[in-house]
């Protein structure tokens, strides 16, 4: 692990802020354990994805400007989400490419923004998290993390160091769970078909827990499992890496 402490701005994401604060605290613990000083700017709100993906480019740019202003002074920006990290890292530079006043700033913030597990494994070279968690967990790769940021091995590598945990791969690991932000409310039937396929795939592994790095996917999967009466526990990977088994899972895990 690198010696000198680094200043990390935590982009907590709106879903974590609203629905699952425990992921935020787990993230802080992991970052601090990895020698970082964590800052949580209180002017942060949303990365702009809902607007960007709905075609409202101007709103997306306004929100992007806000994020860039709030985070530009940190050494790194870390988000417990592949999709928000990809928005900042991959899409901000495109969003501001034709805006001379912002292009450089956007690029600089983009280059230092990371998804949590990728930051820990790739940047901070964390090899073991020293946590304990008794479960057999299926791992769901979120599409943005997987395809836009190349996050696949990092969470598995870190999870391998968790005592008591066994990780299983899904048969169709690269299939989308059907969340897709506003997609799931605009096309609920198609979304439901997709999440149904995903939860069958999860169930087929025989795992008692499902983990992922994105709360959107997790809420979708949890909502479906719960409606179907499944008791599979749904958790964000950060909680497990931080050894947080005290917070009840997003769904399932009732004894």
């Amino acid at each position: 692990m690198a010696d000198s402490p680094v200043n990390v701005g935590l982009f907590v994401t709106c879903l974590v802020d609203l629905f699952r604060p425990s992921v935020g605290f787990a993230t802080v613990k992991l970052l601090e354990d990895a020698g970082c000083i964590v800052h949580v700017p209180d002017t942060q709100t949303c990365c702009g994805q809902p607007a960007y993906n709905s075609g409202s480019r101007n709103d997306a740019k306004d929100l992007g400007r806000n994020v860039i202003a709030a985070f530009q002074d940190f050494d790194y920006v870390v988000a417990p989400s592949g999709s928000c990290a990809a928005m900042i890292r991959e899409h901000y530079p495109r969003l501001f490419a034709d805006d001379p006043a912002m292009a450089d700033k956007a690029k600089r913030v983009a280059d230092k923004t990371f998804e949590l597990t990728s930051f820990l494994a790739d940047v901070r070279k964390v090899t073991s998290v020293g946590a304990k968690f008794n479960a057999v967990a299926a791992y769901h790769d979120s599409c943005s993390g997987l395809r836009e940021l190349g996050v696949r091995e990092q969470p598995r590598y870190l999870l391998a160091s968790v005592e008591g945990l066994e990780v299983k791969d899904l048969e169709k690991g690269d299939a989308c769970c059907g969340f897709g932000g506003t997609f799931c409310v605009k096309y609920p039937e198609i979304s439901d078909e997709m999440v149904t396929r995903k939860t069958s795939d999860i169930t087929a592994t025989g795992a008692d827990t499902v983990l992922a790095g994105d709360l959107g996917c997790l809420m979708n999967i949890a909502g479906k499992l719960k409606r179907d009466g499944s008791n599979i526990a749904v958790r964000h990977v950060a909680e497990v890496l931080a050894g947080d088994d005290g917070t009840p899972p997003i769904a399932g895990g009732e004894r």
């Binding site: 907590v12 629905f19 425990s22 799931c184 609920p188 439901d192 949890a222 997003i250």
Partner: peptide, 24 residues
């Protein structure tokens, strides 16, 4: 307003306080 979601899925309820509030 979220009928599309809740027709086939539950919506996991939040904990009661935002991360930001708890953090501060």
């Amino acid at each position: 307003l979220a009928g599309g979601w809740t027709a086939t899925r539950d919506l996991p309820a939040p904990a009661g306080q935002t991360f930001q509030d708890q953090w501060r």
